[in-house]
Design a binder for these strands. Structure first.
Lengths: 193, 193
DNA sequence: ATAAAAACATACCGTTTAGTATTTTTTTAA
DNA sequence: TTAAAAAAATACTAAACGGTATGTTTTTAT
């Protein structure tokens, strides 16, 4: 990677961390310049606006990072419901740099920007659509093996899991990781036969 | 109500509508002054800062408004699970001025401000704690009558319902009211014996 | 009717915001 | 080695931000 490409990627990663903690609109350009030690000239050489940087941050940092912990663990799942619960447990408790009080970076951005920035919404929707597909596939296999609550249809179940994750991340901001424990427990209640 | 009190309340109501659509930080004082036709002098006569207004808005507009649709319908519930599903259906589809793309005003503010403004967080937590209590009571009665899925403990079930609501409001911003339908259907799956 | 207090209006302030114009430095390729 | 292009630094702008100081109008109570 060229030095310039490294600078660009460093900006995106530090911006991701700032935006995760403070929100997109509340993170100013000067915040980003201060923590990256990059000058305004350098920033605007790499990005033509704050929004272009924000979109690149979603596509080049947030998306691959979340895809890795949301979707990848499901691609080689062998024990359906168990693998889903394992993925969710790790997603909630073991992703470095994610903290209960700050929630999920993807969920946060949906909440803040889906209504006002369609391009952001589309970029975030892609992640959740793919997550839904992976969850649905695993649930389908589980169902064939009789290891899934027969009342749960794979497609609807997948969406319901995503809804639960999003809600747990939100309620975690109010009540701490107790919301996570509870969600994991009731999720199994819902999924198991 | 005196004219001054009416002015104050009008500011809070219009601020509520603006903040619901744009977010708290993205709603400027000038936005509020423009839509209320109130001058800066009048505004700062009634509130000593934007945050004091925001907190008053939560306590005097958001809280009573949401309490009315979240909690009140549960206080005289006769048919447990059915009454919960009815409350939730109306909450999602029939509350005037709430739109799918803007989500839930309470959930939005938790997401945006719980981490940075403890007073806001506490004010919002109160609403959700009371909702949890009301839901828990209804689920307890349902359980005694054998009308609740025996795997669902009232306290945990109440929290899970709240998590689901919050998640549905969030995912609704991405996928529209399909997220609501799905949530209502799977919620019944989870609750019914 | 009038004085005092409450309610509201106007003009301003310092700071922060995203973004631009211009110059300097560094890298790349002939 | 050197010219050109890429990358980065500096200085600046106009607009928007929350908030304040001070003035005028309206209401209240005697």
């Amino acid at each position: 990677m060229s030095k310039a490409a490294a600078t660009r990627h460093m900006i995106l990663e530090k911006a991701f961390a700032l935006i995760y903690r403070k929100g997109y609109q509340a993170t100013s350009l000067d915040d980003i310049l201060a923590t990256t030690a990059v000058t305004k000239g350098a920033f605007y050489y790499h990005f033509k606006s704050k929004d272009e940087m924000g979109l690149a941050m979603i596509n080049e940092v947030l998306y691959p990072g979340m895809q890795r912990v949301m979707i990848e663990p499901l691609l080689h799942a062998t024990d359906g419901v168990h693998d889903i619960v394992l993925m969710m447990t790790r997603l909630l408790y073991e992703v470095p740099d994610l903290e209960v009080k700050y929630g999920c970076p993807a969920v946060n951005l949906i909440d803040e920007l889906a209504a006002s920035k369609p391009e952001f919404k589309n970029a975030l929707n892609k992640l959740f659509q793919e997550w839904k597909g992976a969850l649905s596939t695993v649930l389908g296999t589980s169902r064939e093996q009789g290891k899934l609550n027969p009342r749960v249809q794979p497609g609807l179940g997948a969406q319901f899991i995503i809804i639960g994750y999003s809600g747990a991340r939100n309620l975690g901001k109010l009540q701490g990781s107790e919301a996570y424990q509870l969600f994991l427990s009731e999720l199994q209640n819902y999924l198991k036969p």
